[in-house]
């Protein structure tokens, strides 16, 4: 089945936060008390009950004294997902046939290794130390429904569809290269940016930490090649040279 994706176009966003509300509503996530920090951004950060947040960036310039950027921040559903790579618990994080990176709190052991694996600082934890993040409305997508955020968005700033089709459409309207198109094997959340990703609060080159790549590609295989190697060598030694018998000492 084709990989699904969301295409986010900050330029179309009016900052209404209907998607934040729709997300909470569909996923039955309670509201939280927040603090006014002098910005329209509210709440200030993702929480275990806030999967999707509109980041609010002010970029005043001489030409454009009032320029506001609204960027939906949430799990990117990476094709090559650092969180899944490092997670030690079978089934805690899994990928659906639509390419969604979802989670099962019953299987999560609360080790928080996925924080270290995620290039986007996404995983949050509930009171029981179980992972919590956007699950791409896995249940809706499984029933051919768009995620709540995309369904609600009144301006078309969040659109949902087959990943390839979204990329093709964006190219037609002039976005040659989307953020997330190639990064980390291809993100499930694509961004149509007019400026450098940095301006929108995203890393230019998101990467899984090198130590995790090294661990995955080298240390993991070595852990059984080494063990198997010395067991084989021991057997061989026993057969070819044999034990140190007392008489021979």
């Amino acid at each position: 089945m084709a990989k699904k994706a969301l295409l986010i176009t900050p330029e179309l966003c009016i900052g209404c936060r209907a998607c934040q509300v729709a997300c909470k509503s569909w996923n039955q996530l309670p509201a939280e008390k927040t603090q006014n920090k002098g910005s329209y951004e509210n709440p200030g950060d993702l929480t275990p009950t806030l999967y999707n947040k509109i980041r609010f960036v002010e970029v005043p310039s001489e030409k454009d004294p009032i320029r506001w950027l609204f960027v939906s921040q949430r799990c990117m559903h990476c094709e090559d997902a650092g969180c899944m790579k490092i997670c030690p618990s079978p089934g805690a994080l899994y990928k659906t046939k639509d390419g969604i990176v979802s989670f099962n709190q019953d299987k999560c052991i609360g080790c928080k290794l996925c924080i270290a694996g995620c290039p986007f600082d996404i995983p949050r934890y509930n009171q029981k130390n179980k992972i919590s993040k956007c699950n791409f409305c896995e249940d809706r997508v499984a029933n051919n429904q768009p995620p709540a955020c995309a369904k609600t968005c009144p301006t078309g700033s969040i659109t949902y569809g087959d990943r390839d089709a979204l990329i093709a459409n964006a190219q037609k309207v002039g976005y040659q290269k989307l953020y997330g198109q190639m990064d980390l094997g291809g993100l499930g959340v694509l961004y149509a940016f007019k400026d450098a990703p940095k301006l929108y609060g995203l890393n230019e080159n998101p990467r899984i930490p090198e130590s995790i790549v090294f661990w995955n590609n080298v240390l993991k295989p070595l852990s059984y090649i080494g063990l198997g190697g010395v067991v084989a060598a021991s057997i061989l030694h026993y057969l070819v040279i044999g034990p140190h018998k007392e008489e021979e000492v």
Partner: peptide
């Protein structure tokens, strides 16, 4: 847990030692 720098180093060292 959650301290990215410490955890990444420790994860690496834990696994090198394991090998």
């Amino acid at each position: 847990p959650g301290n990215k720098t410490y955890v990444l180093w420790s994860h690496l060292i834990h696994n090198i030692s394991f090998v």
